[in-house]
Amino acid sequence: MEAGVIISDLIEIKDMVFYRGERVIFNGLCMSVAENAVTSIIGPSGTGKTTLLRLIGGQLVPASGTVRVMGENVSKLSRAGLFELRKKMGLLFQSSALFTDLTVYENVAFSLRVHTDLSDSLIHNLVLMKLNSVGLRGARDLMPSQLSGGMARRIALARAIAMDPALIMYDEPFTGQDPIAMGVVVSLIRALNDALSMTSLLVSHDIYETMSISDKIYILSDGVAIASGSPEELQANQTEKVVQFLNGLPDGPVPFHYPADEFVNDILGATH
């Protein structure tokens, strides 16, 4: 209610705690995503970056703390309210997650058909517009199985922006792409954000690409944000962990080894 007054922050996460089984994924995470900006979350694999997106989308519920999206407390929403909220969000899955039984065209048209009563010709125009913006208007009659990974990701992007969402979230948009496709995706994210005045939230561990398009970056480690700021501020940050992550050093405060006994003990069978 009170957040309805000022919503310059589209997403607000406060003291969020989340467990997966016995493991702590988030331990009092605080962060916010400003409207119309590209905000990125980087961090080593396994820090729950994808989990974070699902928490924001309401597919997971935090153990404590709040996740507010567009002023609404996501975990307190009813099922119907949640689906209403999700119509204003787009999420680009790492695996693209296209509907394999539908053509490219129908994939992009899917949410338009379900959520709106637009006429077929209007939907046709909208779909071609979205496909054109990702440069794949010519691929409209292909099936998802006929697409390369990079093309599939761009189609998924077109599908995610079909309803002109206020917020779009990208889950590892750069992984598994060849350099050209990666360049295409990088520029698309920035261009779409500015052209459609959306808010973008990006989750990645590709530091270089992420730095190049983000307005603000959070570095996650051990369930909390260890640093945040614009790319320039982070470059200037001399905290050990930040330096290790940004420069890709194999060992440091974020250890190379998964917690285990001393190798010598293990190999000599001293334990067990």
Binding site: G57, F83, E84, R86, L91, A97, T100, V114
Partner: peptide, 18 residues
């Protein structure tokens, strides 16, 4: 397994109904 149900959910379409 291929996140199609999740992505449907995130598009505001309930996979239980669809």
């Amino acid at each position: 397994a291929t996140d199609q149900l999740s992505s449907m959910e995130m598009m505001g379409v309930d996979p239980l109904k669809r």
